[in-house]
């Protein structure tokens, strides 16, 4: 009980700083999200069309994903064009988002029942129409699962970017650690979690909007 009230007190007393950090955090996450979605959905679609590249691209995504984040951030800082700050942080996070996004788009497109595609072909749909009218709409549930994983992951990982100059909620946690202040650590963690949950919730709403009700019963089976 005491912890909660002292954390709340900390948040209230430092609200302007926390607001600033939260704003920076959110803007980094949203930037990364926009670029990742455009880039990786596109790559996912490409490898599902040109299947022979699929294994190597997904393999690469897996390898990149397991690089410890702090070392990737650090590595980018040493590249002169990137340096300390936003560019390096964003690029590293975009790379981490590759695995969940590319893989889910590929799996989503591939999970479409081949007989449905066959029926589309038999009705005279062109390959592009099959992609846009059948494969993509039917892939949404799987793709959204990947997007939601990516969103939560990016939000959490963005905290690490504090070490390369981002003034975000990671800084709160980092300072909390160096000063041995539980309130700071908890406050940082709580706000990060709230952001993650909120973005996940928004994605959930979007998923509901985009996914056909004809497919929704499937996810209810789980």
């Amino acid at each position: 009980m005491e912890v909660i009230s002292s954390v709340l007190k900390f948040i209230v007393n430092n609200s302007s700083r926390i607001m600033e950090y939260t704003g920076n955090h959110l803007s980094l996450v949203l930037t990364v999200l926009v670029f990742s979605l455009i880039l990786w959905i596109w790559v996912g679609l490409l490898i599902s069309k040109y299947d022979r590249f699929a294994n190597s691209v997904i393999g690469l995504a897996n390898i990149l994903f397991v690089i410890p984040s702090i070392s990737l951030f650090g590595l980018f800082v040493t590249i002169p064009q990137l340096g300390l700050g936003r560019k390096s942080a964003a690029l590293a996070l975009i790379i981490y988002a590759m695995m969940p996004l590319v893989r889910s788009v590929y799996r989503g497109v591939k999970s479409v029942d081949p007989w449905v595609i066959d029926a589309g072909k038999g009705m005279g749909l062109s390959p592009a129409q099959i992609l846009y009218q059948i494969q993509i709409p039917m892939a949404w549930p799987v793709v959204f699962a990947g997007i939601r994983v990516a969103v939560v992951m990016i939000t959490g990982m963005a905290t690490v970017a504090t070490f390369i100059g981002e003034r975000n909620l990671g800084r709160l946690i980092h300072h909390g650690i160096t000063r041995g202040s539980a309130e700071m650590i908890i406050a940082g963690a709580v706000v990060v979690s709230v952001i993650a949950l909120m973005l996940d919730y928004i994605m959930g709403l979007l998923e509901k909007k985009v996914t056909s009700p004809g497919l929704r019963h499937r996810s209810e089976d789980y």
Partner: peptide, 11 residues
Amino acid sequence: YVIQQIGLLPH
């Protein structure tokens, strides 16, 4: 064309 597997578009 009526395909053997029916193949309605579920979405």
